[in-house]
Design a protein around this nucleic acid. Structure first.
Lengths: 224, 224, 224, 224
DNA sequence: AATGAATGAGCGTTCATTCAT
DNA sequence: TATGAATGAACGCTCATTCAT
């Protein structure tokens, strides 16, 4: 699940840069190093000098690839989040036998992913960044909107009659509920050991939430 | 709901400090200022100089109260979280007619609190801090353990036969599910407007989760 | 002719700074060092780090006195120009026997001053600075306006009937003519050796310009 | 009045460079861009990177044409000043009816030229550069020596008997007096609006200075 | 003739911290 | 209690320059 450079990526480092193979490898190294720093030590420890040092290049050369830290940060967000986007698209088009099974597959993927170092460490940073940084907010909304749209698609297949607004709220509630577990059962977190138990508890419950809500709406619809 | 200095607070500013009235008011001012900075501008903008400036004291004097930034941070955590602790104790001992009504009251309180600027902005900072700072991790665990213990108490009243481990997992899943909404429907967040709809969707269903789980366990118990 | 701190100086270093004797001496040292750098090596070589180094203080401490380089530059302008302002006021109130003698005294002072290292090196920097820096432009206008107002006063004493506008143009032309010599006969300049000869040539003649202009205006006035 | 490459220019970009048509046009572009930067934004903003960027070439290629910034600066001086040299030669050989009329023509040209953006902005930079840069000093002396030699020629025609040294001092005083107006009535300067009035005031006066000095010397000579 | 890639010193500035008074 | 004064490392960033291709 590595970002594919040939894909429709919008923006990357300073234009004109990374044209030769050596430059391309340097550019890749920069992002990899930056990613590792954020995940291992947190965004607060992500400094241009350290990125340069750990990429084995000079500060001057780093700013040849990224004119400003903001530029780098934007590219980093993109770089880290793109694989998730691709995974969501894969899950959307995946045939699991039934919509219900497909929904379960998606929720299990997301829940399991919470325990990943990357997810446990990067996403909370993104949540915080998004509070003050316009660009980060857009990136965050982008990834979660994609995630929810997959849920929406599947729920629509399960209950075609369920009204759109309701389905969207369900997707929001479901995704938020699962994301919330990150800080409790994520990698290295206090209750990481309970992850399997909580997983079975919560996933079945969330699928059940869809059924219940659909039934309630259906009843309300019929009554009207 | 202001922190009561005479309460069982473990540690506070430099010992021997804040003995006189002026000192005490200065100490209070420092924490209030620090809290505001974190909530309004984020932890990254919390600098000793700025705290000093906005507290109308000199940097030198600030370090008289707090020998290091870490010390201040610890006290700040305590200062911000204590009111929540008190609120949870209040909710624990609150009589709402039935355990189910009491559970609903707690979940509604927590859910509504998510939309608060303070909660939306402070807790994600805490989640991040807890990843690297021992003390923050302890503070975070403390507040959430208290929160869950309230849920555990109530659920025990609802289903005395439900085994302890299961009840604890339920409390974990319920609290995590609600917390997760912070970053989506919290103050100023993308989907803040959907808060009321998501609230009604999720709360009833989390209560339902308790019933379902209890029923399933009961059935399993009987079968055995 | 040293700047007097007790005078009506408008602004100085960061407020609250230089309150004790040690701080005051440091503040003075900073300006003296900055002045020397500009005069000896030019404005382009005036860096915060070098000022700090040559003032025997740390960069951090320098920015304690001056929060930004711009602040320091403004204070430096003030510091360097103030003595000139005071000298002009002295010349204005000086009794030289006759207005003509007083005029000659002023022009001689200014002309002789051109050969000073300080004037030769600092004023051209100011002229350049004033092109792009608002504050420098104001400071430059301030010093030259004072200079011209002295000339205006004296010329008014010489020819009370001469119209104000004409007197002002005369002051402008006279001062500009003398200033222009800075870059040719100033300290270390190509033609420094010709200074005495050019001085006698130009000063008498500028006084003569006043007489000639007054006579011409008088004739025109009578004719009308 | 564009610099002619075939003229007796002493040195230009890196030897061997600009041999082909493309190279020549690039070389010309570099100087034009550099000139514009200095005139519009000042010497302090003249950086190699910026010259390269605005010339649409890479920094590497720029240093193919100019091995160092100093080299470029020298060429830039030459490039900017050459048109003035040519203009002075034109003025020297210009027939204006009488030497006095020719002198007036020269002074008027120079005075009017002061109001030019180019002159107002470039010459003060040159004055400053000449203080520390040998080459700039030479270039500056070259242009002003040519200027003065024109004045000397004309004054010699007016008063053939006037001794050489005196004539040279006169030329120095006259040119310096006019140049001094640059920083007061030049383009965008505080007193630009007074330019026409000051012009008539000063030019007639300077011509008069020649007459007076000649008369005085003549009298002194006769007396002796 | 031109490019992309890289260097390393230096820039102005901020920071947590220390300390004498 | 409180201040002014000071440190030194680190920050993001710019610069003239070099060099292989």
């Amino acid at each position: 699940m590595v970002a594919d450079d040939s894909s429709g990526s919008k923006r990357r480092h300073r234009p004109g840069t990374a044209a030769y193979t050596t430059g391309r490898s340097t550019a890749a190294r920069i992002l990899a190093v930056a990613r590792d720093i954020v995940i291992n030590d947190g965004m607060a420890k992500l400094t241009m000098r350290r990125i340069a040092r750990e990429s084995n290049i000079s500060p001057g050369n780093l700013s040849y690839y990224y004119a400003s830290k903001t530029d780098l940060l934007e590219d980093l967000c993109h770089h880290v989040l793109e694989p998730y986007l691709q995974e969501f698209e894969r899950l959307r088009s995946q045939d699991s036998g039934s919509p219900r099974a497909q929904l379960r597959a998606v929720l299990e993927y997301v829940f399991d992913d919470l325990s990943t170092t990357e997810t446990t460490h990067f996403f909370p940073e993104l949540w915080l960044l998004a509070l003050r940084d316009e660009w980060a907010a857009k990136q965050m909304e982008n990834i979660y909107a994609t995630y929810r749209s997959v849920l929406v698609d599947i729920m629509h297949n399960m209950y075609p009659g369920l009204e759109a607004r309701k389905v969207q709220d369900l997707a929001l509630a479901i995704s938020a509920s699962i994301e919330g577990h990150t800080v409790f059962i994520g990698y290295g977190r206090e209750h990481a050991a309970r992850a399997p138990h909580v997983k079975s508890l919560i996933i079945e419950h969330l699928i059940n939430l869809v059924d219940t809500t659909a039934a309630a709406c259906d009843a309300a619809g019929n009554a009207a």
